[in-house]
Write a protein that binds this DNA or RNA. Sequence first.
DNA 1: GCGGATATGGGCATTACGTCA
DNA 2: TATGACGTAATGCCCATATCC
Length: 298
Amino acid sequence: MEDPRVRDGSNMNNVLCKNERFFCSSEVLDSLWITNSSPSFHGSTSMVNFENVQGVKNTERSFFTEIDKKGNGNDDYQSEKKRRLPPDQVLFLERSFEVENKLEPERKLQLAKELGLQPRQVAIWFQNRRARYKTKHLEKEYDSLKESYDKLKADYDSQFKDNEKLKNEVRLLTEKLLSRDKGKRKPEPLDNAEPKKPNLSHDSPNIPEGFSKQEDASSAKSDVSDSDNNSTLVELADSSQVHEQDPSDFSQDEDDSLSKSLLLPFPKLEAECYDDLQPNSCNLGFPVEAQGTCFWPY
DNA sequence: GCGGATATGGGCATTACGTCA
DNA sequence: TATGACGTAATGCCCATATCC
């Protein structure tokens, strides 16, 4: 069974248009496509006697002038020196690549025939093109990840400052309450007085000490993953509904200790705050395979 | 049905060459 | 003119898969 897609050049437009994701202009494709009736690409070798898709001879290319000057009539593809493909051929291959980045044998033969290239050349071009695409894609993915990371880090820093501010407020209020209690009654032994502290503390009798240790923001930041400090902060701020730490949420990020420490205070960010991100814009916590993608696998 | 030999194609690292600043 | 950086065509190797016997 012959694949109708590759039967002739006129059908190639359908091939190129079958994927609606890509820009597809029949005029453009018509200008690119050379039908079998055109002698333009029918040279027996890769690019000898090549004419571009508009039928204009490429007599300006240095390679041909060199060949002509030397009177080299050798049609053997293997013996030819390596040279870049002309822009029109590259454009045509790019269009084909946009449609499908894998090359079935029949399509390879058809492209080779239409472009006047060796099938091997077409296959190599697609192979290299896939490699280039992968590189570019990885670069974009890296940039996206970095952007997401920076954003997340900025969010964390902002939240950290707010946290510090709230801690200071709690500390001041605690001191006020303590001083007011002192004024009301006689001083009591310390261990007796502790349980009479206001609701700010349930299980952490040494709150002021804990705060005093964290007044230096930088040192406190380094301790951000300390569960004792976190629990203290949460209880003091009476925000247990906000902070429900689940260590399992970060099991996929073990290799990145910095990211892990940054994320710890905000275990629900991934699930709740980044739903609107574009695919591939943030991979934190998600395996690459699980991300939606409009790109080809490579 | 199973297993080995062979062919084919893709991925990847690398090389070779052309181009340009 | 020489040179280094960069892009890309091409090569070689490895692996997965399909087919044949």
